[in-house]
């Protein structure tokens, strides 16, 4: 049990029986360093992805050339995709590590 992440009221959330509680904490015990930066990144990731995949940004590479024979826009779309996956994986690992 630890105070919840949006910590206005310090009220505990009951963990389901038989498994470790997956409760986030930003001002928890000093032993579990607050993964605050990672949490902020987790919240910013979809905004980041939306910005890169929505017009007008996504259209910037539309008329670009080719990289190794593949059109730049295809490389761009899938490149952003891979980047988001990598960042999300990082965030998930970090957020998972920050708690007991």
């Amino acid at each position: 049990m630890s105070p919840d992440d949006e910590g206005c009221v310090t009220s505990d959330v009951e963990a389901p029986e038989g498994e470790a509680p997956y409760v986030e904490s930003d001002d928890g015990p000093p032993l579990a360093p607050a993964p605050r930066r990672w949490r902020d990144l987790a919240m910013l990731l979809p905004a980041f992805g939306t910005l890169l995949w929505m017009p007008p940004v996504v259209g910037l590479t539309a008329s670009g050339g080719a990289i190794w024979g593949v059109p730049a826009i295809v490389v761009y779309l899938f490149g952003v995709w891979a980047l988001l996956i990598a960042l999300a994986a990082l965030v998930a690992v970090r957020l998972g590590r920050g708690r007991g």
Partner: peptide, 17 residues
Amino acid sequence: FATIYLGPTLMFVGWWL
């Protein structure tokens, strides 16, 4: 075609929200 996959990707990388 990619849009059908991009939306869910955004939703899942933004799971925290």
